[in-house]
């Protein structure tokens, strides 16, 4: 899985994306747990962050697969 970090989350992680190999699909909660092990403190963004899978917003119970591009979308502020 490719995980993309944006805006303040990118500042927090210090990188734009990581590869996260998966042997089986996982739910969002597990993704956050995995990310927390790599980027301690990142879970504080969980409640305000939406997930996008392959460029579409998904619900928090969506299954995430190894071939997916998953983006962590903090509250937007365009315009």
């Amino acid at each position: 899985m490719k995980v993309v970090f944006l805006a303040q989350i990118k500042v927090n992680t210090g990188c734009e994306e990581i590869a996260l190999p998966l042997s089986q699909p996982i739910h969002a909660a597990e993704l956050w747990r995995l990310l927390e092990t790599k980027f301690p403190g990142i879970q504080r963004y969980q409640s305000s962050t939406r997930l996008a899978v392959n460029f579409e917003f998904v619900n928090s119970d969506a299954l995430l697969a190894d071939e997916d591009e998953v983006a962590l979308i903090p509250p937007v502020s365009g315009g």
Binding site: L6, A7, Q8, A52, F57, A71, I73, P74, V76, S77, G78, G79
Partner: peptide
């Protein structure tokens, strides 16, 4: 459109 852009489009004032 402007209302929805400010809620749903992944663009940020960083």
């Amino acid at each position: 459109f402007m209302d929805r852009l400010k809620q749903e489009v992944p663009i940020w004032k960083i």
